[in-house]
């Protein structure tokens, strides 16, 4: 499943990193502790979080994640979006909370 597919199926906002919309999503990881994501998220995962700090992008790129999904209607700062564009890792958004979004993403990835 590609990033574009989940954008469409989960009705996500695309904030930045449009270049990476063709990336393949192979799993998901939900966490708001960047130290935890740094140690545990698998490459190819879509990362679900409420954190919007620019360090999110450094860690997404370090772990080779396919996308970042920001929940709860939070919006990323300009510096976060700029880095997302630079890295080509999309930052997506939803009004759903992390529990709801993770559940839907999990079902979607399992279907396939």
């Amino acid at each position: 499943m590609k990033v574009t597919d989940i954008v469409e199926k989960l009705e996500l906002t695309v904030f930045s990193g449009h270049e990476g919309l063709g990336r393949v999503i192979t799993g998901g990881y939900s966490s708001d502790l960047l130290s935890d994501v740094m140690g545990h998220a698998a490459a190819g995962a879509a990362w679900v979080t409420i954190q919007t700090h620019r360090n999110v992008m450094a860690i997404a790129s370090l772990r080779d994640l396919s996308a970042v999904i920001i929940t709860g209607g939070e919006t990323p700062g300009d510096d976060t979006m700029a880095q997302s564009n630079e890295e080509g890792v999309p930052v997506l958004g939803t009004i759903l909370n992390t529990f709801e979004l993770s559940g839907r993403l999990y079902s979607l990835l399992k279907e396939k």
Partner: peptide
């Protein structure tokens, strides 16, 4: 510390 620190929350110091 593993909680409420810049390292735990943001992974590293910007």
């Amino acid at each position: 510390r593993p909680s409420f620190s810049i390292t735990s929350q943001l992974g590293f110091i910007p």
